[in-house]
Write a protein that binds this DNA or RNA. Structure first.
Length: 908
RNA sequence: GCGCGCUUAGCUCAGUGGUAGAGCACAUCCUUCACACGGAUGGGGUCGCAGGUUCGAACCCUGCAGCGCGCACCA
């Protein structure tokens, strides 16, 4: 047995030593290490070059890479690498976010599961030590994953939102805003998470449609026994906190009772009926129980009417009502059923109906939040006008632009931001209370600038130097540190650092539209207030990645593929390219692993094209002149020039998917399918040295530039191939090379260019027609087919060999005197009439028999699928589109048989 | 209720007024000396529906329907 792979002598040229299929893993690791070793990602703040900068949206320090991160960071890497190629000094500043609630919850869970302890068992300091340990052990997982993806961040500038200098910034900003009167403390209705035991901002509450029950009950009038007022509620468990009943002043039945008292059943009390326009006449009974402590609207009504506030819930959501021992201490949802049952026993429950309403859930803990009055710190946003105008005027440009409307709408309806959190992990509020006044200050209705002036409280970055003080226990919302990210990462407080000077404001921000309010809007306001201007010039909002069913990726659904697995399977380049190619501008993307597979296949195609070139060695072949080259070479070079030129415009519009698509099409269609096939004759041993030099020179000229254009999308494989093909000198990196300033065909006269493009395109098209002809007669794979060209264009004779090669044909003759036998298959082509003489190609008789048999089989199939056969059951019937397809194929075969008949007649 | 977006081939999506496209999937052929992670050929779409503008509409306008998202309200 002769194994082909061992018989090297069979090959005219030595086979490349490269493996047949591209294996990305080792290559990617090698190049990432090489880039780091050569400090390729470092941004030089003293550079003369134009600055380009991006700050990374800092992932949660304990987070794990998901596909959203991949898309987001691939785009940033593409922008950064492209900017370097454009000769800019690039800073891509990385870092992580301490993610208050998420991180603390993780550590608390671990503590509970492993040691059965709560954070209070440990105490604040010991607990924080645990969180820091956790951060130090797990914090670099996501950083390593970003490196695996190929991200060209300046790791020497990596930041963490709880770095000492960053923390100083957060405190300083708090102090400044406090002194300005924009930060104050007050007792307000806030969103309370009964699981995380902290207040939340409005943005951290997610409204979910929920199936609830609407209870209708009745309260008896105090001085009209036997007369009742009916009200509807979804929350009977808050009945104990009712302090009034409100009706619309125009209520047909109840309006007359305004001012009278009703009996609250438990704990028994008399509460007034009040009139308020806020009550909807149409809803329920048109009467509303007022529970100021546990409902936002009720709280407002309570304020207006001077009602008491009765709080009957513990912070963890259990009932706090010793006057009702049977409910006291119960969970709010258990108490709900119990309270309803109690009402029923008392004969006060009139009805229960199924009801769908929206319930606010805690974003992190995923439980219904509880509106709760508590003492919190709030911020009145600064620089609202400047920030609104900046986006409206296009000074900060949003892409897609429609998000600007969402932003404007939010900016017009700003509510004060609740910035305090009852957590331990985070930036502690930099406020100290005088110890001797602590108890009164703790419960003071409000605290603001004047209280500091009075010396009762101290607000400062450093702790008070002397005296007895107690520090506020709360920490700040994580986003209160995130909003400083673009400048706090580049400088320390009050310091105009060289990095800040060079790279602020940043050029592009790449993030998801889901954090426009959380982050983007607030960064703009902070930028104007604390860094002297806008924080970035462009914001690119990425797609949200969904599964094929259109669902969001989530851990609980298990529909979120692990990007590391995908990179193991397909390579980081494959993942990046595959994802980029399907991610549309401004719409969600439905992710499917097959797109990553295509990315991997594309890398392989590229690799093999280079492998083919390497059969002729890997010494760089210079292109002596662009004049007088074969037309195919001119066409492929002009296509590359066109591509390079078009990409400039598409990059300017941030249409990343289109860039990937264009890169894909050039390599696969123009370069491999057409040019590389056309050029094979020039690389044979029989070819002239001149032809070979031109082909190799064209290959290297085109491929070296193409690799550069592709590099931002597939950094590893392009760097690898550039080295192997000697497109960069030893020790140089493709990633550091500037884009060429002139097109390949810069010196070629337009007339010569156009003529070559036309001729080459005509040959490719003709080759396609000839292949059609072959395939029609089932000769697609035959190499011994010959063609005759009649009435051909004058330049065709020089191109017949290439045409024959492309058509997979043994020989093509140009013969204007050719008389085709009747029935000879023919086609009209851009270069003349083409004939395919059939003599000797097929045994017409045998072929005819074969086709007849096929037709019989096909007819049977068609009948079966139409359900026309006697024994065909209903289930055998094919769907209509299949029937149509099969009928079409039947017709094709019949046509072929007729043609064969003609041919047979002609040959006799 | 207000606002935004989407609806094109079996699937995922391009397509800004002039002959309907790509990849995948499917069918047939080919393991030919870059690549089967490949090559060749082919089948498949009244462009969500109804009107309007236009010589001409997937594209512009109006209305409707379905799906999705955001905001507000929800006793």
């Amino acid at each position: 047995m002769l194994d082909k792979s061992q018989s090297v002598h069979e090959h005219p040229r030595p086979m490349s030593e490269l493996a047949k299929a591209y294996e990305p893993q080792a290559v990617e690791e090698k190049w990432y290490a090489a880039w780091l070793a050569a400090d390729c990602f470092h941004a030089d703040e003293s550079s003369e070059k134009e600055a380009y900068s991006i700050v990374i949206p800092p992932p949660n320090v304990t987070g794990i890479l998901h596909l959203g991160h991949v898309l987001n960071n691939a785009i940033q890497d593409i922008l950064a690498r492209r900017a370097r190629q454009e000769g800019k000094e690039v800073l891509w500043l990385p870092g992580t976010d301490h993610a208050g609630i998420a991180t603390q919850a993780k550590v608390e869970r671990e503590l509970r599961e492993k040691e059965g302890k709560t954070r209070r068992d440990l105490g604040r300091d010991a607990f924080l030590e645990r969180v820091w340990d956790f951060k130090n052990t797990h914090g670099d997982i996501i950083i390593k994953q970003l490196k695996r993806l190929g991200c060209s961040c300046d790791w020497s500038r990596e930041r963490f939102t709880m770095d000492p200098q960053y923390t100083r910034w957060v405190s300083q900003v708090f102090v400044d805003l406090f002194n300005e009167g924009l930060i104050y403390r007050g007792k307000r209705m806030v969103n309370w998470c009964p699981v995380s035991l902290t207040a939340l901002s409005d943005e951290e509450v997610i409204m979910k449609p929920s199936r609830s029950k609407l209870f209708t009950m009745k309260y008896e009038l105090a001085d009209h026994p036997g007369e009742f007022i009916e009200i509807s509620t979804t929350r009977p468990e808050t009945l104990m906190a009712d302090v009034a009943i409100a009706v619309h002043p125009k209520h047909p039945k109840y309006a007359k009772w305004i001012g009278k008292m009703v009996k609250r059943p438990f704990p028994e009390a008399l509460i007034p009926i009040i009139g308020d326009e806020a009550v909807d006449l149409e809803f329920g009974t048109g009467a509303l129980k007022i529970t100021p402590a546990h409902d936002k609207v009720d709280f407002e009504i309570g304020l207006k009417h001077g009602l008491d506030i009765v709080d009957t819930l513990h912070p963890d959501g259990r009932i706090n009502c010793p006057a009702c021992p049977d409910l006291d201490g119960l969970d709010r949802f258990v108490a709900r059923r119990k309270a309803a049952a109690k009402l029923e026993e008392m004969g006060l429950l009139i009805g229960v109906e199924e009801y769908e309403n929206n319930v606010g859930y805690s974003e992190r803990a995923d439980v219904p939040i509880e509106p709760r009055i508590s003492m919190q710190w709030f911020l009145r946003y600064p620089k609202i006008k400047e920030s609104t105008d900046a986006v409206a005027s296009g000074e900060i440009r949003f892409r897609p632009e429609r998000w600007a409307k969402t932003y404007a709408h939010w900016m017009e309806n700003l509510q004060d931001w609740c910035i305090s959190r009852q957590l331990w992990w985070g930036h502690q509020i930099p406020v100290w209370y005088r110890k001797d006044k602590f108890d009164s200050l703790k419960n003071a209705e409000s605290l603001e600038t004047k209280d500091a002036a009075a010396g009762d409280i101290y607000v400062g970055v450093e702790p008070p130097a002397q005296g007895d003080w107690i520090r506020d226990e709360d920490v700040m919302d994580t986003w209160f540190s995130s909003w400083l990210w673009p400048f706090a990462t580049m400088s320390d407080v009050g310091e105009n650092s060289a990095t800040l000077k060079k790279f602020y404001p940043t050029t592009d921000l790449v993030t998801g539209p889901d954090i426009i309010f959380f982050w983007v809007a607030r960064m703009i306001m902070a930028g104007y207030r604390f860094a002297g201007g806008l924080p970035f010039k462009n914001v690119y909002f990425t797609s949200i990645i969904r599964d094929l069913k259109g669902r969001k990726m989530s851990k609980s659904l298990g529909n979120s593929p692990d990007p590391i697995d995908l990179m193991d399977k397909f390579g980081a380049d494959g993942l990046r390219f595959g994802l980029m190619r399907i991610a549309p501008v401004g719409a969600d993307v439905r992710f499917d692993e097959s797109s990553v597979e295509e990315g991997r296949n594309f890398a392989n195609k590229l690799y093999n094209a280079c492998r083919f070139r390497q059969m002729d060695g890997n010494e760089f072949a210079p292109l002596p002149s662009v004049h007088g080259l074969p037309v195919y070479h001119v066409l492929v070079m002009s296509k590359l020039d066109q591509l390079a030129n078009d990409l400039v415009g598409i990059y300017a519009e941030y249409r990343f998917g289109e860039i990937a698509q264009r890169l894909y099409e050039f390599l696969w269609n123009d370069f491999c399918d057409k040019w590389l096939e056309a050029v094979k004759a020039d690389l044979r041993e029989s070819a002239t040295a001149e032809a070979r030099a031109a082909a190799l020179g064209t290959f290297d000229a085109v491929m070296s530039r193409y690799l550069q254009l592709l590099h931002p999308y597939m950094p590893h494989v392009t760097e690898e191939l550039s080295e192997r093909m000697n497109y960069v000198s030893a020790g140089e990196f493709l990633m550091k090379k500037s884009l060429p300033d002139k097109p390949l065909l810069a010196g070629l006269p337009a007339a010569e260019l156009e003529a070559a493009q036309k001729q080459a395109a005509a040959i490719y098209e003709t080759a396609g027609r000839l292949r059609n002809l072959k395939a029609e007669y089932n000769l697609g794979s035959r190499k011994d087919v010959r063609f005759v060209m009649k009435g051909s264009v004058d330049w065709l004779s020089n191109e017949l060999n290439v045409l024959a090669l492309l058509a997979g044909s043994a020989e093509i003759l140009a013969d204007d005197a050719y008389e085709a036998p009747k029935g000879t298959p023919a086609a009209v082509t851009p270069v003349g009439e083409a004939y395919m003489p059939m003599e000797g190609l097929i045994d017409v008789g045998a072929e005819r028999t074969r086709i007849s048999k096929e037709i019989e089989k096909m007819e049977l199939e068609v009948k079966k699928s139409e359900g026309k056969l006697g024994n065909a059951s209903f289930v055998d019937r094919a769907p209509p589109e299949v029937v149509v397809q099969e009928k079409q194929r039947l017709e094709d075969w019949k046509t072929k048989l007729t043609q064969l008949g003609e041919m047979l007649a002609a040959l006799k």
